[in-house]
Amino acid sequence: MDHPVPHLERRFDVELVAATKRYGGVVAVDRVSLRIPRASYCCLLGPSGCGKTSTLRMIAGHETVSDGDILIHDENVTDLAPAERGTAMMFQSYALFPHLSCLDNVAFSLKARGVPKAQRHAKAMEYLALVHMDRLSHRMPAELSGGQQQRVALARALITEPRVLLLDEPLSALDPFLRTRVREELKRLQRELGITFIHVTHSQDEAMALADLMVVMDEGRIRQAAAPREVFERPADSFVAKFIGGHNVLNGPDGLIAVRADRCRLGAPGDQPHIAGRIAAVEYLGTTVRLALTVGDGEGASILLPDELFFANPVQMGEEAVMVWREQDSHPLDLPAAAE
């Protein structure tokens, strides 16, 4: 079946089929397969060097695909130029052209298509209005704050009416307060436009807050791709459990298990699963208190206690302690050998 079948509803906006990126002998992205359902917010999450940015740049067409295929709206775009793919990219540094005003930056793609000046400026103003930047349309990029530059970059990407918007760490240059606000706005825009966003980040909070589909990557491979809640409640392996945080990865009777830190308590050894250790740190976090434990095998574990629970029965650094949890809260992970 070589061509998309017109009468079938398209199910996926973007598909990667064993997409591979090699730089010389180094494999940066290793046979990654992924299907992103229609109009979803997809976050590629992972530590630096995990291949998430290379994956994004292959989808954008800024890196050639060494092997495998990339499909957008059921069309194989593997060998197409970036502009022919229906993708638009928002760069980490925003890459606003420093010699052009905001208006000319946003109107750039229309100019490349030969749209007359008055027309392209009118359209660019519409898109600047969409991101509330219409009042600063004549400013140069250097005169804008980071947040404002980001909005202009967004307008410049959206004016191409992309089928898929690609965002490369879009929030990393913003201060934490602004980050939360822009995060909300990105999600709102994605819902309003009804297109797929693919957002690269190394922040698990960002991915949790935004994603419909959260893709955790490491060493060029996908470790888990699922809804955030699924990833958090049933991490696929110990890497995912450790990377998304909030989990204790422990040795269970049948191999590694993950237990959410907020489901762990201090207690006494009894019938329920437990592990003995020593309190290594007590961190007051406002609504919760985090207790760090050193346990038998040198590994650390942590317990997140609601504040009133902790202050009802406070413990000190250096005390012996036993961490307990309920059987149903432990989630089995793959054995370390099976990960490779």
């Binding site: 760069f91 980490q92 052209f97 793609s109 490349a112």
Partner: peptide
């Protein structure tokens, strides 16, 4: 990234050179 952005926005190699690379 300026050049990649220009390509992404549909500029041809010549337009990219003329409107982005050389002016910057």
């Amino acid at each position: 990234a300026y050049e990649e952005a220009a390509t992404d926005l549909g500029a041809s190699a010549f337009q990219r050179l003329r409107w982005v690379t050389l002016p910057i």
